[in-house]
Design a protein around this nucleic acid. Structure first.
Length: 851
RNA sequence: GCUCGGGUGGUGGAAUGGUAGACACGCCAGACUUAGGAUCUGGUGCCCCAAAGCAUGAGGGUUCGAGUCCCUCCUCGAGCACCA
């Protein structure tokens, strides 16, 4: 059965084949097969209320081309789809309507599924996952419990980023220039009790793992910068003999003899102790001022340095000189030791500060090549440094650190910019954190009793916090009690003081727990103690940290991934999605993956995504980012209605390089639409019957066909879909002129199929080939077929083109020259001049150099 | 400010150091048509009747030959931004 139409009726064709692919489960895959596996992964979408936008099908089409190409090359291809469905917009919709967010989420998912299916992607829909379904988040919660048990989830009460507009805290990664990553609202610092994941413990491995994965350089660089590893030296400056010491961290111990002052962050613990009586007022004023400034202001005012002298001095451990101690907010309490040794001659910031406050500048490094002005921050040779004079800076760093270690003033140290991952949110629409809080006395008693439930499920050091003089300790919910579902609440609105909306679910909130068995009851009874549930939920990133594992065995009830399925699928061979997740999702997921590997929840791959690609953003036709307010948004449903899914797929791939940012051009789609019509007309006559093809192809067509097979194959492998399509256009333009054989038409349709699968499947069927085209063996090319027996040689004089000749393929240089000398135009440019040199590049050019 | 990545016709974009502008949009002319916003044919970087010349952000260099390699600068985009 084929679609019933005479003309290229894309509507009839596309709906017909989409239904057939779905009903016959053509792209369903089993977890074992004699065929080699290939796993293609798209970043799964957030099913927003506005539906699919034009950017989604860009990545999805690219992955679909690869999927169909791999099927045709004999692979067993996993290409799944799912929904990252927890998140803010659904919650805000719920707040607005009073309706539970799951209702609207389900509706949005249905719409997204329908839209994605209207593109005819080769997806195994039996593996669909939804992060908000209890069967899924049960395992997200399970992973949290493992993190908790292994001491990687803890409670902190430090200042965190709070967004008043969103009424929630945010992770460092979610704050960009003092505003929220989502919504672009201002954020501020606030002290709140929060769950934090110890990602810093994985800093070195997260860094090392980047080395052997195939990712875009810019993304690797971003992760490297975010982790921010630096090697340096920690060392002590004595304030008074046997008195307190100021510990500083520096990456330039070679400049230690150039230190002319120390700087403490305003929040540094020793500031008060060091400040002399006469400076107290001034220093206190400065600190209060710094406190009032938001972090945004502090960085905004970065251009102008500020600070005050404390009146205190410290001794340089290497040369015993006394150095003044300042307080300045250009030193951050959160990095290193919160104190620095300032070397104005060799550091831009210290230089600026010294100039402003008239502090001496002492040069200790010379630039060996030329006299660079101070501050000189590069590598050079030491001067004015006593026994270390004449050493190269790199050598000096080692020697000085050694000396510092010998003298007991400090040691070599490694620091990171990466901070632990703030993991709790004051939201309703997220995974509940599966933790109960009990009082310390109960906790200690259970510990003393040493029962199995306690012993096996709690971390070695207690996770607790104090509130109103009571110390609350965290204990886990039992694995068998998962999933911990969200309770019904009267409101989905968080309070503005940092409490989650779950605190309103009083019945759910207050429970009783048996500390020997972990059993939870709703009423007081013998052997049970009262407990309070954790009311924070997990951030949206939690569900997306491991979804690629769930696709392998989406219904597995005994583990987050079935070991046999993991052994077969291993990890995605290709992962495509936007570059905006470079340090969020892609860093978090790597962290969880490493952790799951460590606890043997998975066992095959240490890195989750071996090959990563970012598709570029599609801009509006005015060159700006698409947005409602600009009125330049293109609706994919509308384009499909007018031109069909095949045209839209083809056009998005034809726009330009896959990773480039490129503007949409509404007229441009006409070109690919015409191309598809030409393909149709080449195969089907006015009455809808298959055309009479040529008995034999001409030599030109045969050569063109093989060239096209080669180009399309290579371009798919290297993801250069735009040039693959242009080659297919060249082929059709040629075929249209002279006609082709039935066999050649069939081969061409196979090449077209990954890009425009509906029309290809239809014509493939009409030409009598077996359904489905995606699983027919990919054509191979024969290089001897497209090597014609003549070659074109370009003639040049002094590198300028002065003609061209056709010669026999095997013609030697003498023959080429002989023919060349018969070309009037070429010879004219040479005659009367002295020939200096002749260059012959076989098959390419013959260049004569004259005076 | 620092680190990357770009800059090619009217437009999107092609070009292992070897004929710059493939392919497509748009535009011009023609054909078929009652009609054309369908289809087909031809043309289309600049200057020009033609030949020659000039052209890949600007300027220099290497080379027989440079969009491609090197240096300086301009400019757009991305990332980082007091991380000591």
């Amino acid at each position: 059965m084929l679609a019933d139409c005479k003309n290229y009726d894309f509507k009839a064709i596309e709906s017909f084949w989409q239904k057939k692919w779905l009903e016959e489960k053509v792209f369903h895959v089993e977890n074992e097969d004699a065929k080699e596996k290939y796993y293609v992964l798209d970043m799964f979408p957030y099913p927003s209320g506005t539906g699919l936008h034009i950017g989604h099908p860009e990545g999805y089409t690219a992955s679909d081309i690869l999927t169909r190409y791999k099927w045709a090359n004999g692979f067993n291809v996993l290409h799944p789809m799912g929904w990252d469905a927890f998140g803010l917009p659904a919650e805000q919709h719920a707040i607005g309507t009073g309706q539970h967010p799951s209702i609207n989420t389900a509706k949005n998912i249905d719409r997204f599924r329908e839209q994605i299916q209207s593109f005819g992607f080769a997806i195994d829909w039996d593996r669909e996952v939804d992060t908000t379904s209890p069967e899924y988040f049960r395992w997200t919660q399970w992973i949290f419990l493992q993190l908790f048990k292994h001491g990687l989830a803890y409670i902190d009460d430090k200042p965190v980023w709070w967004c008043p507009e969103l009424r929630s805290v945010l992770a460092n990664e979610e704050v960009i220039n003092g505003r929220s990553e989502r919504g672009n609202f201002p954020v501020e610092r606030k002290n709140l009790r929060q769950w934090v994941l110890r990602i810093t413990q994985y800093a070195d491995r997260l860094l090392a793992g980047l080395e052997d994965i195939d990712w875009p350089d810019s993304t690797k660089r971003q992760q490297i910068a975010w982790i921010g590893r630096s090697e340096g030296t920690e060392l002590d400056f004595e304030i008074a003999p046997n008195g307190p010491k100021i510990r500083v961290y520096t990456t330039r111990p070679d400049t230690i003899c150039g230190v002319t002052f120390l700087v403490l962050a305003p929040e540094h613990g020793l500031v008060e102790k060091i400040t002399t009586v006469e400076n107290r007022e001034k220093v206190q004023g400065y600190i209060n001022n710094a406190k009032k400034k938001s972090d945004l202001e502090r960085t905004d005012l970065a251009k102008e340095k500020s600070g005050v002298f404390t009146g205190g001095f410290a001794k340089n451990p290497l040369n015993d000189t006394l150095i003044p101690i300042w307080v300045a907010d250009y030193v951050l309490v959160s990095y290193g030791t919160g104190a620095i040794m300032a070397v104005p001659a060799h550091d831009d910031r210290d230089f600026e500060f010294a100039q402003k406050f008239d502090i001496p500048i002492k040069q200790v490094i010379t630039d060996p090549k030329n006299e660079s002005p101070l501050p000189f921050c590069g590598e050079g040779v030491l001067i004015n440094s006593g026994e270390f004079d004449d050493l190269a800076t790199e050598e000096a760093r080692k020697k000085i650190t050694q000396k510092v270690e010998q003298l007991g003033f400090g040691y070599g140290a490694v620091k990171y910019k990466l901070r632990d991952w703030l993991f709790s949110r004051q939201r309703y629409w997220g995974e509940p954190i599966p933790i109960l809080w009990i009082e310390r006395s109960n906790y200690d008693r259970a510990l003393a009793e040493n029962n199995a439930y306690f012993r096996d499920n709690i971390p070695t050091s207690v996770v607790s916090y104090r509130k109103n003089d009571i110390e609350w300790c965290a204990i886990p919910i039992l694995e068998k009690q998962l999933p911990l579902k969200l309770p019904e609440t009267e409101t989905y609105l968080p309070s503005d003081d940092g409490e989650s909306p779950l605190v309103h679910a009083k019945q759910w909130l207050n429970v009783f727990v048996n500390l020997s068995t972990g059993e939870i009851g709703t009423e007081a009874q013998e052997g049970f103690v009262s407990a309070i549930r954790e009311t924070n939920t997990m951030p949206q990133w939690a569900g997306s940290c491991w979804y690629y594992l769930r696709y392998m065995s989406p219904n597995c009830g005994s583990a987050l991934v079935d070991p046999a399925a993991e052994a077969y699928w291993k990890s995605p061979d290709f992962y495509i999605g936007g570059a905006e997740h470079a340090v969020l999702h892609l860093l978090y997921a790597r962290f969880w993956h490493l952790f799951l590997y460590d606890i043997k929840a998975i066992s095959i791959e240490k890195e989750p995504f071996r090959k990563l690609f970012h598709q570029g953003i599609i801009l509006g036709s005015d060159g700006n980012k698409m947005s409602k307010s600009r009125g330049n948004v293109v609706n994919p449903d509308e384009v499909i209605r007018q031109y069909g899914a095949d045209s839209l797929r083809l056009y998005e791939m034809f726009l330009g390089p896959l990773d480039a940012m490129k503007p949409w051009n509404t007229r441009g789609i006409e070109g690919v639409y015409r191309f598809l019509k030409k393909v149709w007309v080449l195969c089907i006559d006015h009455e809808g019957k298959v055309k009479k093809f040529l008995e034999r192809d001409s030599a030109e067509i045969e050569s063109l066909l093989h060239e096209t097979i080669k180009k399309v194959t290579n371009d798919i492998e290297s993801l250069q879909f735009n040039t693959a399509i242009s080659q297919m256009m060249i082929f059709i333009n040629g075929a249209q002129k002279v006609g082709i054989s039935h066999r050649t038409a069939v081969i061409f349709l196979q090449l077209l199929a990954p890009f425009a699968p509906h029309i290809a499947e239809e014509l493939w069927g009409r030409l009598g080939e077996k359904f489905p085209v995606a699983k027919a063996q990919w054509p191979t090319y024969d290089a001897s077929r497209f090597a014609t027996n003549q070659m074109k040689i370009v003639l040049q004089v002094n590198g300028k083109v002065r003609g061209e000749i056709l010669v026999d393929n095997k013609a030697a240089q003498e023959i080429v020259e002989k023919i060349a000398w018969q070309q009037h135009r070429f010879v004219e440019f040479i005659s009367g001049k002295e020939i200096v040199k002749k260059i012959y590049i076989p098959g390419k050019i013959f260049n004569v150099v004259v005076h």
